[in-house]
Amino acid sequence: MTHTTLTPSATVPVRGGVLRRWPRWAPWAATLWALGYGLTALGWTLTGAGYPMGPADPEGDMSLLGSVPADVGAPLFAAVALAAAGTGAVMARYRPGVAVPRWWRRFAVGFGGSLAVALLVVVPDTRILAVVGYLPMILLKAPFDAEIRAQVGDALGVEHLHQVVALAGGFLWAAATVVYARRTAGSCVRCGRPDRSAAVATVLRWARPAVYVAAAIPALYAVTRWIWVAGIPLGIDEELHAEGMADGSLWSGAWLASFALVGTVLTLGLVQRWGEVFPRWVPVLRGRRVPVGLAVAPASVVAALVTSGGLGLIKAGIADSTFTSDDWAAVGPALLWPLWGVALAVATLAYWLRRRGTCADCGLSEAA
């Protein structure tokens, strides 16, 4: 049986760089974000213009907040964001060793965590996920195709910008909440040690099942889309399939399918050796260790996007009554997207825990 022990390192290297100093600036960055968002939402409330969600949104049916009107959403978001700014300022000013009432710590951690989840999962919808999926194709073809450049310009609007801002705020508030929770618990703000070894062991134990689930769901999506392009109307209305073949729209799904298969392979790398060390067939980088952030950052973003996108698709399907047995391949994979997101989040956390190594701040590490 393997036990996790914490041992101090003999020397702790001093690390620089803005990203490596995230525990210092993340709480203040989250506070400033909340203040800016709160003032913006207050502007929506007072002027009655600029609210980027609700029934006025042309594609709001895919959003979990699509039915929230401006006269309700704008003042609500302003109040929550301004309250978050005040809470964040208190969290950012905390200094280790100062006694904190238990009720306040629970409130601050619960409020910060809930706000992060709302910003990462509730506010975004399938549009940002679609942009991410088509981004490689856009980058490859846009310089040579004026029509694509025009379509991209028309498609991207204030709704997309708002969702990007929300995602940024969600990750900032997640980081700020983690920092505050660790500081008030007397743990290292960078790595969380000494943490609960039982909780870490549980996450690591579920790593492989989570990876396999997170890899299988996009693969299922990809298979159905390529079957359609091959001319087989599997799990889709035949008339709709014929229209998609005629106007070429099914090829867009095939492109996303290819991108999903790439995601499947990269997800498997979270539990493979080549996910930690670049394999020999990779030029220049072969044999070098894969930076932890290179895997964790994109996987975290995708986990948030597929969870929010899947919930939005489910909401739209229920509202439109589009979930039928005849179109199971068209809507079935979407029902699994929230599970995909949660599984990918667990797999990503396990990958980080396994590879975090000796902490540059506290000098603690896991030893088997």
Rank of each mutant, 00 (worst) to 15 (best):
L46N: 02
A198T: 14
G170N: 01
A295N: 11
W281N: 10
L172F: 00
I227N: 03
A242Y: 06
A304G: 05
P233H: 06
W103M: 13
R149W: 02
R273I: 06
I318M: 11
S249K: 09
R182M: 11
R193I: 01
V296H: 01
T267N: 01
G97C: 02
R24M: 03
L82F: 02
G235A: 08
A254P: 03
S365A: 14
W352S: 11
A242E: 11
I217G: 12
C359V: 07
Y51L: 10
R182D: 10
G60F: 00
V271Q: 13
E243Q: 15
G38Q: 08
A347K: 05
L115A: 13
T126I: 05
Y351N: 12
L76R: 14
L65C: 08
T307R: 07
V223E: 05
T7G: 07
T324V: 08
A260Y: 07
G357L: 05
A26I: 03
L285E: 06
E366C: 07
S249G: 05
W251E: 11
G275T: 00
Y134D: 12
T31L: 00
A216K: 03
V178C: 12
I227A: 10
L42E: 11
W103E: 13
P8D: 13
P58K: 06
A230H: 00
A316M: 06
G43W: 09
P13G: 11
T224I: 08
V72A: 15
A70E: 10
F111W: 15
G293F: 02
C188G: 03
A83F: 00
D154H: 11
V98A: 15
I232K: 14
S325H: 02
A215P: 01
A146C: 08
L167W: 04
D154I: 05
L82T: 03
A368T: 13
W228R: 00
K141G: 10
A222W: 00
A257T: 03
E366N: 11
L311Q: 03
A116S: 12
G357Q: 10
L32G: 09
G312F: 03
G153H: 06
V164I: 08
W25R: 06
G275S: 10
V100F: 04
P124S: 00
W28A: 12
P218L: 04
A303L: 03
L234K: 06
P52Q: 09
T264P: 00
G73N: 09
G16K: 12
M245R: 14
A142W: 04
L313N: 06
Y37F: 15
G43R: 08
L120F: 02
L19N: 10
Y221R: 05
V200E: 08
A181I: 05
P279L: 09
V121E: 03
D361S: 07
A108M: 07
L119T: 01
P291N: 05
W352Q: 11
D61Y: 12
G73M: 01
F107H: 10
A81I: 00
T87Q: 10
V178R: 13
A142N: 01
G97A: 08
L167Q: 03
G110S: 01
G50Y: 07
A297S: 14
I232A: 15
W352Y: 15
E159H: 12
F278A: 12
